[in-house]
């Protein structure tokens, strides 16, 4: 996977327990549906909190999304 940290537009689900699930996002004018989330974890590097989602695309392709809590921004972190 390549490091990108590219800001993206995202549609996500925030459920009543506060759980966040990315649904689809726009990257390079394409709309990508988030098919499967393999892992979700919170990272706090230097105290800055981001939710990290490791996702699977078309059953064989891994990528990572990050949601930064303070800025409310989404990133395509690795693909």
């Amino acid at each position: 996977m390549k490091l990108l940290n590219h800001p993206i537009e995202m549609i996500a689900v925030f459920d009543i327990d506060g759980k966040i699930t990315p649904a689809k996002f726009r990257y390079e004018d394409k709309v990508v549906r988030v098919e499967k989330i393999i892992k979700r974890q919170k990272e706090k590097l230097a105290g800055n909190e981001r939710w990290v989602f490791t996702c699977m695309h078309q059953q064989n392709y891994l990528y990572e999304l990050k949601y930064e809590i303070d800025t409310q921004k989404w990133f395509l972190f690795k693909k």
Partner: peptide
Amino acid sequence: SWHQAYYRQIGRD
């Protein structure tokens, strides 16, 4: 150290 941790978070190596 802080700057380094921040770089790690934004994917700079």
